[in-house]
Nucleic acid binder design. Structure first.
Lengths: 296, 296
DNA sequence: CTACGCGGTGCGTGGAGTGCAAAAAAGAAT
DNA sequence: ATTCTTTTTTGCACTCCACGCACCGCGTAG
């Protein structure tokens, strides 16, 4: 029983005509007719009830075709999966992340990734909106929350935290707060996200305190928020990976290095999401492994 | 890709030797060698790493073989499952007949058929129009004429005849005709079929006579015609199977019990039609046999 | 060192599969 | 009704693939 033959059967069922299948395949109609007849002889039952004007699957034929359809599919997948074992990890991998995370965390990794996986080319889709992985043909998504639903695989890439930072000159002008409570006297820079607006949370030695904050400036973009903080417009609550470089360079100062800081919950992390396929393309696999190795 | 080929691959993996597989299958070792080589060429990767003394699946080959093994199994199961559908005298059989024949002849057989073939469920499509057997997924058709054309198998189910009948009270009011010719003086009930309209034929001892008939009432439905006859509206030419019960119950009287009666030809019969003798599902076969036994 | 058995290859032949053409048939169109 | 078109099926050459056979290279076992 040839798989090509079985695919012919399915095409016959789909098109409802031997002649149409023959035209589509560029063969003689007699070819299709004989193929079906031969399969029927081998199977021992009739697959299609046919007249000169119509071809209709029999009950047994419909049952058989319905059952073999996924099998033929999987047979092809088995071939592809096995081929990937020997194939070099090559091709284009589409990766999506937020603009800030992409530019600050992923872009610095690109040189190393290029040398480690020269055959893989990365296509970065940076967007602060949640891109549909299937519709966008996305292989890998980097998000700051795990997959809420569906057939996505979530792996924690790295733990993330927040820092309250301000610029040197802002501190020189307004004084450096020594305790979180002092922030209530400052006009802080805030995100428009509801979680970040009313209060910030601090934790040290297991003791948590919430500090109400306020300020005239609200921003929807963390890069802009960071820029504002660097410009000395006030203290800001920002992700640690976003301000690591600025802290190291001295452009920003971590106001409470001894405390954990959070907007809503303390348990935050960056997640790597990818669609749960039966067999992940090798090029995607190696990129995932590289990212986990570099960030995990 | 032939499933038999794929099974050969599995046997190679199991036995670890081309020659052993060749012996087991009774073919030449070169056959196995070439089969494997051809599959590898089609797949694009090597399945077995082989030396003169050992055959070992490659990593890709092992993965491929492991994945196709259950698929081949299911492929066979699909065949068996479908074959069982046709082999078992069980399931739904779609049967079409005219409304009158179905209700008067087939329905009385149903109780016996239910007990004789409890696993078979009958779906009756009663229609006075010629149903398309293919489009309607009909297994068996009961018609009062043989298949005029096509690849349908026709078997005569039972001979049928016609009777000229009238109700007791009609005869009391209009007198009982003693010879067919007397019908010309009656207003008879007629079918709208062209054959039945102008004259009725009678035969006794090989002598045929045609009697012209007329009447104001024409009906297109034999059940309505019978009802009209029962209601004393006049004599009617009706199929014997249609009036047998009424004659037995005395609701109708056979006016010419000694004669054969016909509308057009005397050779009339009920036919059983079914598509294609080859690969006839067993459930259809047993219903056909039952009907022939009960009516033939 | 020899012999056996293994996988791989060249070769000739028979049969399977191909397209073509014609037949049968069923629906559509006139 | 009758003709026409389209579709399935089958008969018929023809081609070419797949089969077994013989042989080669090679590694292991005795």
């Amino acid at each position: 029983m040839d798989t090509d033959t079985l695919k012919t059967l399915q095409e016959v069922a789909a098109r409802g005509s031997f002649a149409a299948v023959a035209r589509a395949r560029g063969v003689d109609p007699s070819n299709v007719s004989r193929t079906v007849a031969q399969v029927e002889a081998q199977l021992g039952f009739r697959l299609f009830q046919r007249s000169t004007r119509a071809v209709q699957p029999t009950e047994a034929g419909a049952l058989y075709l319905a059952r073999i359809a996924p099998l033929l599919e999987e047979l092809d997948q088995a071939r592809d999966a096995a081929a990937q074992v020997v194939a070099q990890p090559a091709g284009r991998v589409r990766l999506t992340a937020s603009v800030a995370f992409g530019t600050e965390v992923i872009v610095p990794l690109l040189p190393g990734l290029r040398t480690a996986l020269p055959e893989v080319s990365l296509e970065m889709v940076l967007s602060d909106e949640n891109v549909d992985l299937l519709a966008g043909q996305i292989d890998i998504a980097l998000r700051l929350a795990p997959a809420p639903k569906g057939d996505l695989i979530s792996v924690k890439l790295m733990d993330t935290g927040y820092r309250v930072v301000a610029s040197q000159d802002y501190l020189a002008r307004h004084g450096r707060p020594t305790a979180p409570q002092d922030l209530s006297a400052h006009e802080v820079l805030r995100m428009t996200l509801p979680d970040h607006r009313a209060q910030w949370q601090f934790r040290r030695d297991g003791v948590t305190e919430a500090v109400p904050v306020s300020g005239p400036l609200l921003m929807s973009n963390v890069l802009a928020l960071r820029a504002a903080a660097c410009a000395g417009l006030g203290p800001a609550l920002l992700a640690d990976w976003l301000v690591a470089e600025d802290l190291a360079a001295g452009r920003l100062v971590d106001l409470f290095p001894g405390r954990e800081v959070a907007a809503s919950g303390f348990e935050t992390a960056a997640w790597l999401l990818y669609p749960s396929r039966a067999y992940l393309p090798r090029k995607v696999r190696v990129v995932i492994d590289y990212l986990r190795g570099a960030l995990g």
